[in-house]
Design a protein around this nucleic acid. Structure first.
Lengths: 335, 335
DNA sequence: CTGTTAGCGCCTTCAG
DNA sequence: CTGAAGGCGCTAACAG
């Protein structure tokens, strides 16, 4: 049936397989007339090159891999969206792997990709990953670019968000909208991202000459407990602004306010970090710091293709993208 | 460096390449002792089989393709999540393609996949696609399974959601919570899904002996216009329940109620179809009919692997999955 | 500008 | 149970 290969094409055209191959790859050493003839016959015969054969010979898979903790996480799905778009423009294919935060799985994926299946890897590492050895083994063999969840102790290309700036902006926004006592709900504060967010908050206060009060910065736990923690915070400290340092903290804020009959944003204004640009749309009372997932995907992929196309690329750089403040009525009184 | 191939492995072991190959593939005609020896050396030498070579020879790519309109759409990203999970369990790789609803792109993807790059395809078709010819060309060559956005006029395996049942359940839920005048906001009513949703609504009313009033069923347009349309509906018809037949209609409902100072759920109860199970978490006042995206991905992939493993599969079946009613305080008064 | 030759790395006969 | 030989479809190197 369909087994049209380059030989049959060549036979049909009274040419050698090599010539046909060259014509199809648009080589400069083939005449325009011949190329046209070949192209037309290829279309007519429904010829599609066998990628395995061509990879085997040329050592180019025209494929890249994306490794993320979770596809359905909106942040990563948006990033993949950006990656796919760039890959498409380069006529590349995209393989997807999710680690579910499992370091073993991540290593297995990486190892299996060292066999020539892909020309490059984009990775957002599993949170448990500390061993940078696995990544170091890859670097000499295959371009490997980190995005969002980057590996710290390794010299490589990394794309991250500007957590410090995001948090600073969020805090400033609340201050500019009249908040005097802004509380900060901590989370993931052992990660670089978490630390930077805290620093942004603290420095924004300082720059506005508001005294940092550590009673306004509380630790968080499970969703159930958080509602109580936040209620307690609201009652004892009476803040007029809340910063939820991760998306998961926004709902407890909402519930706590509701249980205390505090009106948002009249009594308390809320800003939440979020992976979802639409979070504020789904919940109209939620202002968010939306992470630039799509742009991150595009950027990471863009750099990878520069490398694959042998462009000059600084191989030990960290690119920092800014988040976007999406304002809803949780911080500004609309009437 | 790493170019350790089967020959080098064989040389190291004083065996022939053929024997090593068989041992690695766990062939029954190799002694257990030899197998163990080979396996260990393979691990020691960091041997990874070259997939191109083995595909070329064996005509198995160990890869499947997923074609969807948009990755970042939460429905599809969840579906992909499910697909990846099943693929993983079968040691398969997953290629992702997004069409952005572009039929040309979709055809190009499909054509390019006919070359042996993948062993099967899972597809959710672009909305503009009507030509079933392209798909028909694939079926004899490669397993092709439709999910969610299926092609109607073709004999193939299809997985869909139960739009009729979902809508029926939603309507019944509102009725059970005291609604007497339930309005229905139409959308995508030219698609099978849209039609079935309307039918579910109408029949649920009928079964509860509520007269269907066509003034309660309105067409929708852009988000801006929808707020006005819904406001008008609320003012002239005074419904006590609203059904948003797609996710994008939920926010206009919210805004319209707010502008008219109608309390949710006291004055009006709302249910929205949604791709996002978490929609009701992000927006606590929103009850949703959540589509079973993850399950759909798992199901579609499961059937594909049955086919790939030569299990008996009915090749012209349509599987219908149920949506899930996720209740929040938009329909039930909590205090 | 085109043809011939020789593999890429693996798997699958066919012989032992 | 193991080895030797050949070829999957394509492309790179070398000739003309």
């Amino acid at each position: 049936m369909d087994k049209v290969n380059i030989k049959k094409l060549a036979a049909e055209l009274n040419l050698s397989a090599a010539t046909v191959s060259r014509a199809l790859r648009d080589s400069h050493e083939i005449g325009a007339a011949t190329k046209a003839r070949v192209m037309e016959m290829a279309r007519k015969m429904n010829y599609v090159a066998n990628p395995s054969a061509s990879n085997l010979r040329s050592h180019k898979s025209k494929t890249i891999a994306v490794i993320v903790p979770e596809i359905a996480n909106s942040f990563f799905s948006q990033a993949i969206n950006g990656i796919e778009e760039i890959a498409r423009a380069h006529n590349y294919h995209v393989l997807i792997y999710q680690t579910h935060e499992n370091v073993e799985a991540e290593n297995a994926f990486i190892r299996s990709l060292l066999s020539g299946r892909v020309d490059g890897i984009l990775i957002s590492i599993a949170s448990g990953t500390s061993e940078s050895r696995n990544y170091k083994d890859v670097l000499p063999v295959l371009p490997l670019i980190f995005f969002d969840r980057v590996c710290e102790d390794i010299e490589a290309i990394k794309i991250t968000t500007n957590d410090y700036q995001s948090s600073y902006t969020a805090t400033k926004h609340l201050i500019e909208n009249g908040c005097k006592k802004i509380a900060y709900l901590k989370a993931i504060d052992h990660t670089p991202a978490g630390k930077n967010r805290i620093a942004g908050y603290v420095n924004a206060l300082k720059d506005s000459e508001i005294l940092f009060d550590e009673r306004l910065m509380i630790d968080t736990r499970s969703e159930q407990e958080n509602v109580e923690l936040i209620k307690n915070l609201l009652q004892t400290q009476k803040p007029d602004g809340l910063i939820a340092s991760i998306e998961e903290l926004s709902l407890p804020c909402y519930y706590a306010c509701r249980e205390l009959s505090l009106k948002i944003p009249t009594d308390v204004k809320i800003i939440s970090f979020s992976n979802l640009k639409t979070a504020g749309i789904l919940n109209p009372s939620l202002t968010t710091i939306a992470q630039p997932a799509f742009e991150m995907g595009r950027t990471a992929a863009g750099i990878l293709f520069k490398i694959l196309n042998r462009k000059e690329v600084e191989l030990n750089q960290t690119l920092v993208l800014d988040s976007e403040l999406v304002v809803r009525d949780s911080t500004q009184n609309l009437y």
